[in-house]
Amino acid sequence: MSRKHRIWYPGATYHITARGNRRAALFLEDEDYHMYLSILEDVRGFYPFILHSYCLMTNHIHLQIETIRHHIKDIMKELHSRYAVYLNKKLKVDGHVFQGRYGAELIETAEYFLEVSRYIHRNPLEAHMVNHLIEYPWSSYPSYVHYTNNPHIDSTKTYSFFFEPVHLRYQKFVEKLNKTSVKESH
């Protein structure tokens, strides 16, 4: 039985997830995180896309990607095959780095777009890796809260859902324990 084809159209936005094979670590040290982001930028040069948010966890990744002209399968195939080659070479092993096919949930509403952003950024806190989200270095969250440039992301669309000061309202939206509706965040 063949796999179901992924829905794609120019501008399609996805919550991408991928896990290390057998839940193994994808990132063993800081240079691995840097390499993943470097490969991501290189791939973006061939297959332009917009990255709205990301969180690289020890054994899995979350990306919020908006496509432009290229199918998500082309973007992810290039990104993950190149990272797998890097990691296998570094570890002097062969075989799968990622467990199965990456997940790609289509994001079609503003509410879901924001919920995915919140979910991605809350990952290190929910996994008890940090006490404060701002402490996790392998996420786009610190740049959102500090209102600083992160060359990997475009925060324009996310910020567009909030009134000024957008970075503080976004922080409140993400960090509030009880989920705030999108309308309350404005």
Results as ranks from 00 to 15, higher is better:
4 K>C: 09
9 Y>V: 04
10 P>W: 06
10 P>L: 09
13 T>A: 08
15 H>Q: 01
24 A>C: 06
35 M>L: 10
35 M>D: 05
36 Y>V: 10
37 L>K: 08
44 R>V: 05
46 F>V: 12
48 P>S: 12
52 H>Q: 08
52 H>W: 13
61 I>W: 00
62 H>T: 02
66 E>T: 15
69 R>W: 10
69 R>T: 13
72 I>C: 10
74 D>C: 08
75 I>P: 05
77 K>L: 13
79 L>Q: 02
82 R>V: 07
83 Y>A: 02
85 V>F: 09
89 K>D: 03
91 L>K: 14
98 F>I: 14
101 R>W: 05
104 A>W: 04
106 L>H: 11
108 E>I: 10
111 E>S: 13
112 Y>W: 05
113 F>H: 08
115 E>K: 15
118 R>G: 00
120 I>N: 04
124 P>R: 03
125 L>W: 08
130 V>M: 12
130 V>Y: 12
132 H>L: 10
136 Y>K: 04
136 Y>G: 04
143 S>N: 07
144 Y>V: 06
145 V>F: 04
146 H>S: 11
150 N>V: 09
152 H>I: 07
153 I>S: 07
161 F>H: 13
163 F>H: 15
163 F>R: 15
165 P>L: 05
166 V>T: 12
166 V>A: 10
174 V>M: 06
175 E>F: 02
178 N>P: 03
180 T>Y: 01
181 S>W: 05
182 V>Y: 07
182 V>H: 11
